[in-house]
């Protein structure tokens, strides 16, 4: 069954080669061998330029212009108005006092979400990694168990949990069996916030578990044997040997998960739609809805909000770079 497939792939591979060989060889003769590297870089750089570098610049133009036109030529210059509109509040601790109250709610939601989701996820990932690092049978299988949800699409993840958490779902049925009252999990604001954190931990912790596990496995086993010879208790082994040696990996994991959490959107959007009200609306959803889902499309406001988010991400990325470097050096 695989033979025709392999043959087809090989044929495709060869055809693709022949297709490009003649123009590439010609181009090589044209530019000379010393500049051939640029030929190989060209397609990638073209895409980068068009969809990454150019947009970075354009973002600032959008952020400083108004109206709902997509073409920059049709957008009047408004200076810092988009920013000041986003940032104008009488009391920064109370989103209701802000001109863009949904934005501020999203900011606060994102803040809480990031702190809680990252905190608990790292804790669970660490415990799981420590357990998977023990000498247990079926190691590979169990690693797969915890990793499996990472591969599921956010929409699928959200639908799975929506089905479980619905009013007449299996979760409420279980509660009633225990004699407890059923709850409208995704309609109650506090529970909904709990569940978006829970679901995003469920969906992503396998990835961080895997990285922490790799970090644990990089610790040489003779260190543990030496500690055992020294009569160290399990707790002391953990606190004085495992944790310090795992710290560099830990820092990378924390920063990486912070960066991801700030941009959380997909599964939450499908699970709760940001509701009830805007109780689970995070910053990226605000940007999406402001710029694309609502009429009029406030591109300027969305761009301004993205730039504010970019500033946060930039700080986090710099932290990551420092962390990666100290890990590489350590």
């Amino acid at each position: 069954m695989f033979k025709p497939l392999t043959q087809a792939v090989q044929l495709g591979y060869r055809t693709a080669f022949n297709l490009f060989e003649w123009p590439m060889a010609g181009a090589q003769r044209l530019v000379g061998i010393s500049r051939v590297a640029w030929l190989f870089l060209l397609p990638n750089l073209l895409i980068f330029g068009l969809f990454t570098f150019l947009p970075i610049i354009l973002n600032f133009f959008y952020a400083t212009t108004g109206s709902d036109a997509i073409l920059l030529s049709q957008r009047p210059y408004v200076g810092a108005e988009n920013f000041s509109s986003l940032l104008s509040c009488t009391d920064y601790l109370d989103p209701n006092s802000c001109r863009r109250d949904v934005f501020w709610r999203a900011v606060y939601n994102t803040g809480w979400f990031v702190v809680l989701q990252v905190g608990f996820m790292i804790a669970f990932s660490l415990v799981t990694a420590l357990i998977l690092n023990r000498d247990i049978p079926l190691k590979g299988f169990f690693r797969g168990v915890f990793f499996y949800p990472v591969l599921l699409s956010p929409v699928v993840v959200a639908l799975i949990w929506k089905w479980i958490l619905q009013r007449y779902g299996i979760f409420n049925a279980g509660l009633e069996d225990l004699g407890l009252a059923p709850v409208d999990w995704l309609i109650d604001a506090h529970w909904a916030f709990f569940w978006i954190i829970f679901v995003s931990i469920w969906a992503h912790m396998g990835f961080y578990t895997l990285i922490l596990l790799a970090g644990l496995q990089a610790i040489p086993s003779d260190v543990y044997e030496a500690a055992e010879m020294d009569g160290a208790s399990r707790f002391r082994v953990f606190s004085k040997i495992t944790m310090p040696l795992l710290m560099p990996t830990m820092v990378v994991v924390v920063v990486l998960s912070l960066i991801r959490a700030v941009q959380a959107f997909d599964e939450i959007f499908v699970l709760t739609g940001g509701g009830p009200g805007s109780a689970t609306t995070l910053i990226l959803q605000y940007i999406y809805e402001t710029g694309f889902a609502s009429r009029p499309q406030l591109f300027g406001l969305a761009a301004a909000a993205s730039i504010l988010m970019a500033v946060v991400l930039l700080v986090l990325t710099l932290l990551q770079l420092r962390a990666t470097r100290s890990q590489a050096e350590g």
Binding site: F51, L54, Y62, I259, G291, I307, M309, A310
Partner: peptide, 12 residues
């Protein structure tokens, strides 16, 4: 990440 350039990428 592309998430912070949504608007201009859409323009392109």
């Amino acid at each position: 990440p592309p998430t912070i350039n949504l608007v201009p990428i859409y323009l392109v």
